[in-house]
Design a binder for these strands. Structure first.
Lengths: 154, 154
DNA sequence: CACGTGAGTTCCCTCAGGGAACCTACTCAC
DNA sequence: GTGAGTAGGTTCCCTGAGGGAACTCACGTG
C-alpha cells in the first residue's frame, strides 16, 4: 500500500485516523447518522464518486463501524453499529469546532437539540471521573500499558 | 485541485475535515500538543515524508491552528493557537474511541491524567446546557441558520 | 417487455503522497 | 576559518489513490 498504514502505530489517535481519517469517511458517517443511508443518496448528497464511495463503505463495514443490510431484494442500506454510534462523538466535537471557528456570519448550518433537556446546545468535554471540564489545558499525557507497538514488525 | 474542497460545504463537519481531515494532520497536531514541536522531531516520530510534512504544516498555519515561531536564528517551532488547542478536543475523543475499540489486550498506549481531579481517566461528552451525557442517542439534528451554502457557486 | 432505479464495477487520467537527493543558514569544534 | 553537524526545508521522480464517466446486473413496474 502507498498510504502509510496508521493501524499499527501505538497511538489510539492514529488507529482511529486509520478508520475515519480518510477525507470522506466522517461525512459518510454523518450522512448515515442523519438517515441518509443508501448508496445513491449518500453519493448525491456528498458529490463523491461512486468508486470512492464504494471503497469507503467497504472499509467502514470491514472496520465494523457500519453494517450493510438488505432492506429489500438487492437493495442495501448502511446503518451504524455500536462502534459507529460512538464515533458520532467525534463528529459532534468536529461539528462544534467548525461551528465555533468556521461558520462565519451565516451561523451554524446545523443545530443540535439535546433530547434530554430539550435545549438547542452543543457538546462539551468533561472528565468521566469528576465531571468537570477536561481539555487540552487540564490534561497531562502519560505512557500507558500499550505504549509499545502491539504488532512487532511481522 | 483534485481533492474535493470541503471548505465550501454547508457542514461544520466537512469544514473541520477540510482543516484536519488529511490523514496526517491529527497526528501532527497530537505531536505538537505533547511537545514535539520541531520539523525534524515531528518527521522522525511520525515517519512522514518531508514534503508532506511541510505541506501539512503550511496548511495548518494557514488555517490558524498552528503558529510558526522562530525560537532561534532560522530555527522554528510550531505551537498550537487557541483554535488549535480546541482542536485537541477532537483528538481526545478520537483517542478515547481508539482506546475503547482498537487498543486490544495491550491496553491503551497513552493515559490521560486530569489535572483537576488527579485521576487517570478519559473524556465524556456532555451537554453544555444541562450537563448530562450527550451522544448519538440523545441528540436530534435540525437545520440551522447557516444551512444554505455561504459561498454560492462562484 | 421496455424502462427506470439501486448498487455497484471498470476504465482512464490526473494529481497527491512517499522517498531520496539536494540546498541553505547557522553553529560549533578544532 | 573551515569542515562537520543540524534545522528546516525544496526539488525530483514514481506510484497509487481520487475523480469522472461509462458499463453492468438484478430487480420492480406499467
Amino acid at each position: 500500500m502507498q498510504r502509510t498504514d496508521f493501524g499499527g502505530m501505538a497511538c489510539s489517535i492514529a488507529r482511529t485516523a486509520d478508520v475515519i481519517g480518510e477525507p470522506w469517511s466522517p461525512l459518510v458517517l454523518r450522512n448515515v447518522y442523519v438517515g441518509i443511508t443508501r448508496f445513491d443518496q449518500i453519493r448525491q448528497q456528498l458529490g463523491i464518486s461512486r468508486k470512492v464511495l464504494a471503497e469507503r463503505l467497504r472499509w467502514l463495514v470491514e472496520s465494523d463501524v457500519l453494517d450493510r443490510r438488505e432492506y429489500a431484494a438487492n437493495r442495501h442500506e448502511y446503518v451504524l453499529t455500536e462502534r459507529g454510534r460512538e464515533l458520532v462523538d467525534v463528529l459532534m466535537v468536529m461539528a462544534r469546532w467548525g461551528d465555533r471557528w468556521l461558520a462565519g456570519d451565516a451561523g451554524p448550518p446545523v443545530l443540535y437539540r439535546h433530547r434530554t433537556c430539550g435545549g438547542t446546545t452543543h457538546v462539551t468535554l468533561t472528565c468521566a471521573d469528576c465531571g468537570t471540564p477536561m481539555d487540552a489545558d487540564t490534561v497531562d499525557v502519560l505512557p500507558g500499558p500499550g505504549a509499545r507497538p502491539p504488532a512487532p514488525a511481522s
